[in-house]
Amino acid sequence: MAKRIEVSDLSIYYNNFLAVEGVNISIEPRSITAIIGPSGCGKSTFLRTLNRMHEVIPGGRVEGKVVMDGQDLYGEDVDPVDVRRQIGMVFQRPNPFPTMSIYGNVAAGIRLNNTKMKKSDLDDLVERSLKGANLWNEVKDRLDRPGAGLSGGQQQRLCIARAIAIEPDVLLMDEPASALDPISTLAIEDLMHELKERFTIVIVTHNMQQAARVSESTGFFNLNGIGQPGRLIEFNSTEKIFGNPDVKATEDYISGRFG
């Protein structure tokens, strides 16, 4: 069940440092939304506020609203742990749990939460998730081997399998392919096309072609200068952003003229 996310007037702080200011964005269900922008403009920071991972960092806090299907994720009575169960995340660097097997990594969401599940159901879930992440064929004979023994690209797909195994509504991906070769990157892009049938996907990327290839909508973040907060400059359909953007800064960035 994919969900729509409405962000309004979101400002994000590290202690007293305002990292991102006044973001308004509407993320459509069953689509891929790309976030682009220069380094340090707060893309990761913004992404992490969508599933309340930002407050894990000491001093991290936000102002504003993030509403998912009518519910404010930062409301008084909302448990961040519940939010994260509905909004999964894939990190920039692959981080499979080093103590767990491939199987254990995919089953981690279930096992770590002590969710009761029959062995056969769990087996099914693991297989489904690994197939969903396009990894099943490569690892089906060695599910009990350590997850850390896979190649970087395989590890990243393992992390995607781990994230989709808890069946979230939304999947956040922070530069999921930045450390990967073109073939693994393509595999992950294909995968995103399949996943968007079921999930709402938000992806941060430095790769403009990638954003243009995979996403329906694109948001461009930028900084006015060092020490200034990052802002959402333009949010539009990907076609418009890459064809005929409304804002001059977006065009400059996309065509490589900035700074």
Partner: peptide
């Protein structure tokens, strides 16, 4: 590494 803690939190643990 913090990455593992974050990976776990992100799974809703």
């Amino acid at each position: 590494p913090n990455e593992y803690r974050e990976a776990s939190y992100a799974l809703g643990v």
